[in-house]
Design a protein around this nucleic acid. Sequence first.
DNA 1: AGAATAGTGTCTCTAAGACATTATCGG
DNA 2: CCGATAATGTCTTAGAGACACTATTCT
Lengths: 302, 302
Amino acid sequence: MKQSSPVNKQGQTEQQFLQAYDASQFDRPSVTVDMLVFTVSDEEEKNYRKLSPKSLNILLVKRGDHPFMGQWALPGGFVSPSESLEEAARRELRTETNLDNIYLEQLYTWGEVDRDPRTRVISTSYMALVNSEALEVIAGDDADEAEWFQLEDKWLRETKTATPDGSITEKWIELHLRHEDVELSATIKVTKTVTGRSVRETREIVEANQIAFDHAQIIQYALERLRNKIEYTDIAFALMPELFTLTELQQVYEVILGKELLAAAFRRKVADKVIETNQYRKNAGHRPSKYFRFNPEWMDQA
Amino acid sequence: MKQSSPVNKQGQTEQQFLQAYDASQFDRPSVTVDMLVFTVSDEEEKNYRKLSPKSLNILLVKRGDHPFMGQWALPGGFVSPSESLEEAARRELRTETNLDNIYLEQLYTWGEVDRDPRTRVISTSYMALVNSEALEVIAGDDADEAEWFQLEDKWLRETKTATPDGSITEKWIELHLRHEDVELSATIKVTKTVTGRSVRETREIVEANQIAFDHAQIIQYALERLRNKIEYTDIAFALMPELFTLTELQQVYEVILGKELLAAAFRRKVADKVIETNQYRKNAGHRPSKYFRFNPEWMDQA
DNA sequence: AGAATAGTGTCTCTAAGACATTATCGG
DNA sequence: CCGATAATGTCTTAGAGACACTATTCT
């Protein structure tokens, strides 16, 4: 398809041009990938009859070097010249979790000039979802200690200001991350600016407690995206083990959405997306629940 | 918040570390932004009574140098060290369209190793929506000639193959771009791989005719995203002029979605999002239609 | 007059929300 | 039997689709 005969203004053919091309003529930023690895796990419950509540967890690593030494950050690293962005993301995922073939989705690319004090770093964030059974499988990565942090967000307050041709809405959101006795927190301000017919959204870290770089705002963004996507896609199943009960599935939706759902409506909605098995979960002090599995055929109608 | 007293394994404080940090220790890719500038414009209609049909348009520039010399590409350029990704995108938008304060959304970051024959280039694509009244305002940019291309896509065929633990669905889509007598086209294959509970989607250019780089697949991706987002957000208004009729608004939805909508249902759906004016469009050989404007307050309920 | 679009009324159908009711276990 | 969850039935409500019908203009 490509012709190599025509010459440019310098009289070069394409081949000559490529040989003479000086790749270092532009100042180049560093490029990294950051991984947002989510899972939903059981918390302990003493009453044998009650169901164990679920929590949403995210994987963080403790920084062993400057900057932000001792603070917690998203796992990730530099993209090597020989791998694509997604390959880099999968490589990072493998070294942190030993897991392969996992739901992975590119989230956003963060390109503020001063987001890393070392040098200009542009970072593409990927969201990965792993099922709770894989929870223990964190690789004992040489340098960093990686841990699952229980993640919660809290709506703090919202202000709306009128402008000549629109409005500005500011929303403060608090993040809480907990692992055993380690507690991290951050406050993010999300600003939505309406001007005429166009809307613009920006994020800003108001305060970050032991969370490195701009990672608190990346986590907040990812949580919002996860919340949106669980409503109109099937990513929830990527968080489930092979067999699950409908109540477990509902709990996953509830912990991500941060609200309770009605069982009847929920079951109707997922009915086509799951396949009944003839196995039951027993020993629970109440009526046993049937196990289901994901129905990969259900998309054919849609 | 940040402590500068602790030292790392090399005995450096944070300040010492940053001074000694060698920014060039990693091979760095080039980083660019690519702009997908969409607009919806009227096509000519001879019958004074009939409404003029609308078409979806995208801005492309003709390449004046290798590689892909003479072919058409997305406007864009390198990100300078002193500007953020979004600033670079707005700068490119300004130089190409003279328009500021426009709907702009980051789409995706393309990171395949060999997507640019010159060197490793990672490119973040942004989608911009401009209203049709601004259509003429293309800056006579020194080097490149920029033109609006009418964009259409066509579903070609789809195959589904079973695999041990899922399936592979391949979808072929043809793009057509037209500006006066210039015709560009491309065939994109979108592969959806279902493995267990996780889904993965990849794109591949089967054939590209006069469209540079991997830009055909970026356009196809953007079109898909635009189609999705118009259903659950209000980006459509970014494509409208200040005043518009409901039929015009409906036409914008129709040309993007590629299907006809029922007027009654459509009007019910947008009723809360618009404000009636007392102006009418006249001289049309049929009942005059009322002009509306966007209602920026409508989001308050939602 | 009549071609063409603007705009509304209303019936149907589907899906979600709300809530009550029945089923079934372990102890 | 009791406490707890599992699972279903059904009434109500909201919204989309379908389509008919009325309104209004310019040549």
